[in-house]
Amino acid sequence: MALRGPPEERSLAELREFGVVNLDKPAGPSAHQVAGWIRDALGVEKAAHAGTLDPKVTGCLPALTGTATRLAQVFLEGEKEYVAVLELHGPAPTDVENVVAEFEGEIYQKPPRKSAVSRRLRTRRIHALDLLEVRDRQALLRIRCESGTYVRKLCHDVGLALGTGAHMGHLRRTATDPFDDTDLRSMHDLVDAIEFAEGGDEEPFRETLRPAEDALVHLPRVTIAPSAAREVANGAQVYAPGVIDSEGDPDEEPLVACYTPDGAAVCLGRLVGDPDADAGRAVALERVLV
Protein backbone atom coordinates (compact mmCIF):
# COMPACT_ATOMS: atom_id res chain seq x y z
CA MET A 1 0.00 0.00 0.00
CA ALA A 2 1.38 3.41 -0.96
CA LEU A 3 1.83 6.02 1.76
CA ARG A 4 1.68 9.79 1.38
CA GLY A 5 4.92 11.51 0.55
CA PRO A 6 6.51 14.48 2.34
CA PRO A 7 3.91 17.24 2.96
CA GLU A 8 5.77 19.96 1.07
CA GLU A 9 6.18 17.78 -2.05
CA ARG A 10 2.52 16.92 -2.61
CA SER A 11 0.61 17.78 -5.74
CA LEU A 12 -2.33 20.18 -5.65
CA ALA A 13 -4.70 17.23 -5.99
CA GLU A 14 -3.10 15.59 -2.96
CA LEU A 15 -3.42 18.83 -0.98
CA ARG A 16 -7.13 19.01 -1.79
CA GLU A 17 -7.59 15.50 -0.41
CA PHE A 18 -5.61 16.04 2.80
CA GLY A 19 -5.53 19.75 3.51
CA VAL A 20 -6.41 22.46 6.00
CA VAL A 21 -7.17 26.14 5.50
CA ASN A 22 -7.05 28.58 8.41
CA LEU A 23 -10.23 30.39 7.41
CA ASP A 24 -11.32 33.83 8.57
CA LYS A 25 -15.04 33.19 8.97
CA PRO A 26 -17.23 36.20 8.14
CA ALA A 27 -20.39 37.16 10.03
CA GLY A 28 -23.58 35.73 8.54
CA PRO A 29 -23.11 32.12 7.40
CA SER A 30 -22.99 29.18 9.77
CA ALA A 31 -19.79 27.19 10.17
CA HIS A 32 -21.55 24.31 8.37
CA GLN A 33 -22.35 26.55 5.39
CA VAL A 34 -18.75 27.72 5.20
CA ALA A 35 -17.51 24.12 5.14
CA GLY A 36 -19.93 23.42 2.29
CA TRP A 37 -18.61 26.37 0.30
CA ILE A 38 -15.04 25.13 0.74
CA ARG A 39 -16.02 21.61 -0.33
CA ASP A 40 -17.70 22.90 -3.49
CA ALA A 41 -14.94 25.40 -4.34
CA LEU A 42 -12.24 22.72 -4.12
CA GLY A 43 -14.33 20.02 -5.75
CA VAL A 44 -13.70 17.51 -2.95
CA GLU A 45 -16.12 14.96 -1.58
CA LYS A 46 -16.18 16.44 1.92
CA ALA A 47 -14.93 19.25 4.11
CA ALA A 48 -15.40 19.89 7.82
CA HIS A 49 -14.96 22.85 10.12
CA ALA A 50 -12.97 22.54 13.32
CA GLY A 51 -15.03 23.94 16.19
CA THR A 52 -18.45 25.47 15.63
CA LEU A 53 -18.88 29.24 15.43
CA ASP A 54 -22.34 30.84 15.55
CA PRO A 55 -23.40 32.74 12.41
CA LYS A 56 -22.69 36.17 13.95
CA VAL A 57 -19.25 35.16 15.25
CA THR A 58 -16.17 35.85 13.12
CA GLY A 59 -12.58 34.72 13.08
CA CYS A 60 -10.41 31.63 13.17
CA LEU A 61 -12.23 28.60 11.74
CA PRO A 62 -9.81 25.93 10.50
CA ALA A 63 -11.43 23.80 7.81
CA LEU A 64 -10.30 20.30 6.85
CA THR A 65 -10.67 18.79 3.40
CA GLY A 66 -11.00 15.25 2.10
CA THR A 67 -9.48 12.57 4.31
CA ALA A 68 -8.28 15.29 6.70
CA THR A 69 -11.83 15.52 8.08
CA ARG A 70 -10.79 12.54 10.21
CA LEU A 71 -8.60 14.97 12.18
CA ALA A 72 -11.48 17.03 13.59
CA GLN A 73 -11.04 15.58 17.09
CA VAL A 74 -7.63 17.24 17.53
CA PHE A 75 -9.37 20.58 18.01
CA LEU A 76 -11.12 19.19 21.09
CA GLU A 77 -7.74 18.79 22.78
CA GLY A 78 -6.42 22.33 22.45
CA GLU A 79 -7.28 25.80 23.72
CA LYS A 80 -9.33 28.59 22.16
CA GLU A 81 -8.85 32.36 22.30
CA TYR A 82 -11.52 35.01 21.79
CA VAL A 83 -11.93 38.75 21.90
CA ALA A 84 -15.41 39.67 23.13
CA VAL A 85 -17.34 42.85 23.76
CA LEU A 86 -19.06 42.70 27.15
CA GLU A 87 -22.21 44.81 26.97
CA LEU A 88 -22.88 46.03 30.52
CA HIS A 89 -26.43 46.82 31.63
CA GLY A 90 -25.22 49.67 33.81
CA PRO A 91 -22.17 51.86 34.44
CA ALA A 92 -18.95 49.87 34.87
CA PRO A 93 -18.00 49.57 38.57
CA THR A 94 -14.57 50.72 39.66
CA ASP A 95 -13.49 47.18 40.54
CA VAL A 96 -14.37 45.70 37.14
CA GLU A 97 -10.81 44.51 36.49
CA ASN A 98 -10.60 42.67 39.83
CA VAL A 99 -13.99 41.01 39.30
CA VAL A 100 -13.06 39.87 35.80
CA ALA A 101 -9.78 38.40 37.09
CA GLU A 102 -11.70 36.20 39.56
CA PHE A 103 -13.00 34.13 36.64
CA GLU A 104 -9.57 32.81 35.74
CA GLY A 105 -9.12 29.16 36.63
CA GLU A 106 -11.75 26.42 36.76
CA ILE A 107 -15.37 27.51 36.46
CA TYR A 108 -18.73 25.72 36.38
CA GLN A 109 -20.93 25.97 33.30
CA LYS A 110 -24.18 24.44 32.10
CA PRO A 111 -24.62 24.42 28.30
CA PRO A 112 -27.42 26.68 27.01
CA ARG A 113 -30.81 25.25 26.03
CA LYS A 114 -30.03 25.42 22.30
CA SER A 115 -26.78 23.49 22.72
CA ALA A 116 -26.28 20.19 20.91
CA VAL A 117 -24.73 18.62 24.04
CA SER A 118 -26.36 17.40 27.24
CA ARG A 119 -27.22 20.23 29.65
CA ARG A 120 -25.26 18.91 32.58
CA LEU A 121 -23.19 21.08 34.91
CA ARG A 122 -19.54 20.75 33.99
CA THR A 123 -16.23 22.47 34.58
CA ARG A 124 -14.15 24.43 32.09
CA ARG A 125 -10.80 26.14 32.61
CA ILE A 126 -10.28 29.81 31.83
CA HIS A 127 -6.53 30.07 31.28
CA ALA A 128 -6.49 33.87 30.98
CA LEU A 129 -9.16 36.56 31.11
CA ASP A 130 -7.79 40.02 30.36
CA LEU A 131 -9.66 43.31 30.50
CA LEU A 132 -8.33 45.22 27.48
CA GLU A 133 -10.47 48.35 27.60
CA VAL A 134 -13.55 49.86 29.27
CA ARG A 135 -15.60 52.52 27.52
CA ASP A 136 -18.98 53.72 28.78
CA ARG A 137 -21.02 50.54 29.23
CA GLN A 138 -18.75 48.28 27.20
CA ALA A 139 -15.74 46.21 28.21
CA LEU A 140 -13.36 44.51 25.79
CA LEU A 141 -12.20 41.09 27.00
CA ARG A 142 -9.55 38.68 25.73
CA ILE A 143 -10.33 35.11 26.77
CA ARG A 144 -8.01 32.11 26.57
CA CYS A 145 -10.01 29.05 27.53
CA GLU A 146 -10.47 25.31 27.33
CA SER A 147 -12.26 23.96 24.29
CA GLY A 148 -16.01 23.73 24.88
CA THR A 149 -16.27 26.90 26.97
CA TYR A 150 -19.45 28.90 26.33
CA VAL A 151 -18.30 32.51 26.07
CA ARG A 152 -21.86 33.84 25.98
CA LYS A 153 -22.55 32.16 29.34
CA LEU A 154 -19.24 33.43 30.70
CA CYS A 155 -20.19 37.01 29.79
CA HIS A 156 -23.57 36.58 31.50
CA ASP A 157 -21.90 35.30 34.68
CA VAL A 158 -19.34 38.13 34.70
CA GLY A 159 -22.22 40.59 34.47
CA LEU A 160 -23.91 39.01 37.48
CA ALA A 161 -20.67 39.20 39.47
CA LEU A 162 -20.28 42.88 38.55
CA GLY A 163 -23.79 43.60 39.80
CA THR A 164 -24.79 45.35 36.58
CA GLY A 165 -25.81 42.41 34.45
CA ALA A 166 -24.25 41.97 31.02
CA HIS A 167 -24.48 40.08 27.77
CA MET A 168 -22.04 39.21 25.01
CA GLY A 169 -21.85 41.63 22.10
CA HIS A 170 -19.52 41.03 19.18
CA LEU A 171 -17.32 37.94 19.44
CA ARG A 172 -14.27 37.06 17.38
CA ARG A 173 -12.18 33.92 17.72
CA THR A 174 -8.52 34.81 17.44
CA ALA A 175 -7.01 31.35 17.94
CA THR A 176 -7.83 27.67 18.08
CA ASP A 177 -4.75 25.54 18.74
CA PRO A 178 -2.55 25.29 16.78
CA PHE A 179 -3.86 28.12 14.54
CA ASP A 180 -4.22 31.83 15.26
CA ASP A 181 -5.15 35.03 13.46
CA THR A 182 -1.67 35.82 12.15
CA ASP A 183 -2.19 33.89 8.90
CA LEU A 184 -5.94 33.80 8.29
CA ARG A 185 -7.31 33.33 4.78
CA SER A 186 -10.72 34.49 3.57
CA MET A 187 -13.06 32.66 1.20
CA HIS A 188 -12.08 35.24 -1.42
CA ASP A 189 -8.42 34.27 -0.91
CA LEU A 190 -9.27 30.61 -1.44
CA VAL A 191 -11.29 31.22 -4.61
CA ASP A 192 -8.56 33.49 -6.00
CA ALA A 193 -5.91 30.88 -5.16
CA ILE A 194 -7.88 28.23 -7.06
CA GLU A 195 -8.07 30.50 -10.11
CA PHE A 196 -4.34 31.26 -9.93
CA ALA A 197 -3.57 27.52 -9.73
CA GLU A 198 -5.72 26.86 -12.80
CA GLY A 199 -3.64 29.52 -14.57
CA GLY A 200 -0.38 27.83 -13.59
CA ASP A 201 0.59 29.82 -10.48
CA GLU A 202 0.55 27.30 -7.60
CA GLU A 203 2.07 29.48 -4.86
CA PRO A 204 -1.13 31.23 -3.64
CA PHE A 205 -2.90 27.85 -3.52
CA ARG A 206 -0.13 26.25 -1.47
CA GLU A 207 -0.08 29.23 0.91
CA THR A 208 -3.85 29.01 1.44
CA LEU A 209 -4.52 25.27 1.54
CA ARG A 210 -1.84 23.74 3.71
CA PRO A 211 -0.95 20.06 4.30
CA ALA A 212 -3.23 18.71 7.03
CA GLU A 213 -0.15 17.94 9.15
CA ASP A 214 -0.21 21.66 10.05
CA ALA A 215 -3.23 20.87 12.26
CA LEU A 216 -1.18 18.39 14.31
CA VAL A 217 1.90 20.39 15.30
CA HIS A 218 0.66 20.96 18.87
CA LEU A 219 0.39 17.21 19.57
CA PRO A 220 3.23 14.97 20.79
CA ARG A 221 4.92 13.33 17.82
CA VAL A 222 5.61 9.62 17.31
CA THR A 223 7.73 8.57 14.32
CA ILE A 224 7.19 5.03 13.07
CA ALA A 225 8.91 2.97 10.41
CA PRO A 226 7.35 2.85 6.91
CA SER A 227 6.77 -0.88 7.33
CA ALA A 228 4.84 -0.21 10.55
CA ALA A 229 2.87 2.57 8.82
CA ARG A 230 1.74 0.11 6.12
CA GLU A 231 0.57 -2.28 8.82
CA VAL A 232 -1.38 0.54 10.50
CA ALA A 233 -3.02 1.36 7.16
CA ASN A 234 -4.26 -2.22 7.11
CA GLY A 235 -5.71 -2.02 10.62
CA ALA A 236 -2.79 -3.04 12.84
CA GLN A 237 -1.86 -1.29 16.09
CA VAL A 238 1.40 0.59 16.62
CA TYR A 239 3.78 -1.75 18.41
CA ALA A 240 6.98 -0.73 20.15
CA PRO A 241 9.39 -2.37 17.65
CA GLY A 242 8.01 -0.14 14.89
CA VAL A 243 8.58 3.12 16.80
CA ILE A 244 11.65 5.12 15.78
CA ASP A 245 11.17 8.12 18.08
CA SER A 246 8.44 9.46 20.36
CA GLU A 247 7.32 12.35 22.56
CA GLY A 248 4.87 12.37 25.46
CA ASP A 249 4.43 10.51 28.75
CA PRO A 250 2.70 7.10 28.44
CA ASP A 251 1.42 7.45 32.01
CA GLU A 252 -0.72 10.40 30.89
CA GLU A 253 -1.96 8.62 27.73
CA PRO A 254 -1.80 11.80 25.63
CA LEU A 255 -3.29 12.06 22.16
CA VAL A 256 -0.37 11.72 19.75
CA ALA A 257 0.13 11.94 16.00
CA CYS A 258 2.16 9.21 14.30
CA TYR A 259 4.29 10.03 11.25
CA THR A 260 6.55 8.31 8.79
CA PRO A 261 10.20 9.52 8.83
CA ASP A 262 9.51 11.95 5.95
CA GLY A 263 6.81 13.75 7.96
CA ALA A 264 3.62 12.24 6.53
CA ALA A 265 0.84 11.72 9.12
CA VAL A 266 -0.33 8.12 9.49
CA CYS A 267 -2.70 7.99 12.45
CA LEU A 268 -3.88 9.48 15.73
CA GLY A 269 -3.81 7.52 18.94
CA ARG A 270 -3.07 7.43 22.64
CA LEU A 271 0.44 6.75 23.89
CA VAL A 272 -0.18 3.78 26.19
CA GLY A 273 3.08 1.85 26.36
CA ASP A 274 6.83 2.29 26.45
CA PRO A 275 7.99 3.01 22.87
CA ASP A 276 11.49 1.87 23.86
CA ALA A 277 10.28 -1.58 24.86
CA ASP A 278 11.14 -4.70 22.87
CA ALA A 279 7.49 -5.67 22.46
CA GLY A 280 3.96 -4.58 23.29
CA ARG A 281 1.56 -1.96 22.03
CA ALA A 282 2.93 1.59 22.12
CA VAL A 283 0.00 3.55 20.67
CA ALA A 284 -3.71 2.71 20.91
CA LEU A 285 -5.20 3.74 17.57
CA GLU A 286 -8.06 6.23 17.39
CA ARG A 287 -7.98 7.41 13.77
CA VAL A 288 -6.17 5.98 10.76
CA LEU A 289 -5.33 8.74 8.28
CA VAL A 290 -4.02 6.72 5.30
Score class of each variant (00 low, 15 high):
61 L>P: 12
65 T>P: 07
82 Y>P: 08
58 T>I: 05
55 P>R: 09
66 G>A: 01
101 A>G: 02
64 L>S: 02
79 E>T: 14
76 L>T: 10
104 E>G: 11
58 T>Y: 03
103 F>P: 08
69 T>L: 10
111 P>A: 12
80 K>L: 09
84 A>D: 07
98 N>L: 14
86 L>H: 00
108 Y>A: 12
64 L>M: 11
76 L>P: 04
69 T>P: 02
68 A>I: 07
56 K>G: 10
97 E>N: 02
94 T>P: 04
58 T>R: 15
90 G>D: 04
60 C>R: 05
64 L>K: 07
60 C>N: 15
70 R>A: 03
52 T>D: 09
53 L>C: 11
69 T>K: 08
71 L>R: 10
85 V>H: 11
83 V>T: 11
92 A>N: 08
49 H>W: 05
70 R>I: 02
101 A>I: 00
76 L>C: 01
76 L>V: 04
83 V>H: 07
105 G>D: 03
95 D>H: 13
79 E>S: 14
96 V>E: 00
108 Y>I: 09
105 G>L: 13
85 V>S: 11
87 E>Q: 15
79 E>V: 12
101 A>S: 11
53 L>Y: 04
108 Y>C: 06
81 E>C: 04
93 P>W: 06
73 Q>E: 15
77 E>G: 11
110 K>R: 15
54 D>L: 11
57 V>E: 00
78 G>P: 10
59 G>D: 08
68 A>D: 03
104 E>S: 05
66 G>F: 01
90 G>A: 07
105 G>I: 05
95 D>K: 12
99 V>K: 05
102 E>M: 14
65 T>H: 13
85 V>C: 09
101 A>E: 07
66 G>T: 04
82 Y>I: 05
106 E>G: 03
110 K>C: 07
64 L>N: 07
91 P>Q: 02
54 D>A: 10
72 A>S: 10
88 L>T: 05
77 E>L: 03
55 P>E: 04
64 L>V: 10
62 P>F: 02
62 P>S: 00
87 E>K: 15
75 F>A: 09
50 A>T: 14
60 C>D: 08
79 E>M: 13
90 G>T: 06
81 E>T: 10
78 G>W: 00
94 T>R: 15
104 E>M: 05
55 P>N: 07
67 T>S: 15
107 I>V: 15
104 E>Y: 02
87 E>G: 05
